Amino acid sequence: MSVTSERRAAASAWQRVASLAKRALLVELRIYANIVRFVARRPAVAPGAVGFGYHQPVMTVLVVFIVLSAVEIPVIDLIVHRWPAVRIAMLVLGIWGVTWMFGLLCGYLMRPMTVGPAGIRVRQGLELDVALAWDDIASVARVKVVDEPKSPRIETTDAARTLVLRMQDETNLRIELERPTVVRLPGHAPKGGDQEITALRLWVDDPKGFLDEVRRHL
């Protein structure tokens, strides 16, 4: 490998590290922003739009993790209380972990899917946020699909390229687009970054209500 190639490889590696650090920082900030939204009871729903949750399949798991993480704090503190430095470090780590998990739960609650005058906003977790205008959408239908575990997020066939946003390996709505549309996904290519899609499959807790609201606009 030439010196120039080595420098390019090193620069590319540093760019990736910087990108990952920036992404981690943004996720951390969103954790606290979602907690503030939860306390203020201000979900991220545009004026005139209606929000639809998608958290029911994972709600129990998240609550159990939060409770177990909270219970671990006094237990670990009791074990390491003889070592002040370790005790402080474990307390900070434990409190941060509970806060992070609670912020993640708030992210599901405060960042719902939305249907409104501007179109459909597809969200998932802390990062994914895809805005689709009504001019981009050909149809929305209720179609329940159960996929194999660890199936790819982008499904590619001869006829379509579909973004799949599963909850517990399931989706219950399909959105067909009028034309190939570029959306930005968290992370880097080939799984993230700018991706051209022709359809989406997703899960909402109330698919009937979602479709009723779509019919008001589409």
Score class of each variant (00 low, 15 high):
residue 204 V to D: 07
residue 94 G to Q: 11
residue 132 L to E: 02
residue 126 L to P: 01
residue 126 L to Q: 06
residue 208 K to T: 14
residue 74 P to F: 07
residue 192 G to S: 08
residue 113 M to I: 05
residue 74 P to N: 03
residue 62 L to V: 03
residue 179 R to L: 04
residue 169 D to T: 11
residue 19 S to R: 15
residue 17 V to T: 14
residue 187 G to S: 06
residue 118 A to K: 08
residue 216 R to K: 15
residue 49 A to P: 03
residue 78 L to P: 06
residue 110 M to V: 04
residue 151 S to C: 08
residue 60 T to P: 05
residue 175 I to A: 07
residue 186 P to M: 13
residue 142 R to I: 13
residue 177 L to T: 07
residue 74 P to V: 12
residue 189 A to G: 12
residue 68 L to E: 15
residue 206 D to G: 05
residue 177 L to Q: 02
residue 75 V to Y: 03
residue 43 P to N: 11
residue 214 V to L: 01
residue 197 I to G: 01
residue 183 V to E: 06
residue 121 R to E: 13
residue 144 K to W: 10
residue 81 H to I: 04
residue 121 R to N: 15
residue 210 F to N: 06
residue 30 R to T: 07
residue 8 R to E: 15
residue 84 P to L: 01
residue 67 V to N: 08
residue 179 R to I: 02
residue 214 V to Q: 05
residue 41 R to L: 11
residue 178 E to I: 00
residue 184 R to E: 15
residue 25 L to S: 12
residue 159 A to L: 07
residue 125 G to W: 04
residue 113 M to Y: 10
residue 108 Y to F: 14
residue 200 L to Q: 01
residue 95 I to Y: 05
residue 93 L to A: 13
residue 17 V to Y: 08
residue 81 H to Y: 10
residue 40 A to P: 01
residue 83 W to N: 15
residue 194 D to W: 10
residue 118 A to M: 03
residue 136 D to R: 14
residue 47 P to K: 01
residue 170 E to S: 14
residue 143 V to G: 00
residue 146 V to Q: 11
residue 77 D to L: 12
residue 19 S to C: 02
residue 113 M to E: 13
residue 191 K to N: 08
residue 3 V to Y: 07
residue 51 G to W: 06
residue 73 I to F: 07
residue 175 I to M: 06
residue 193 G to M: 10
residue 180 P to V: 00
residue 115 V to S: 03
residue 140 V to D: 10
residue 59 M to Q: 13
residue 171 T to C: 13
residue 200 L to D: 02
residue 46 A to F: 02
residue 203 W to T: 02
residue 177 L to H: 01
residue 181 T to R: 06
residue 60 T to R: 14
residue 31 I to C: 15
residue 45 V to F: 11
residue 168 Q to E: 14
residue 96 W to G: 04
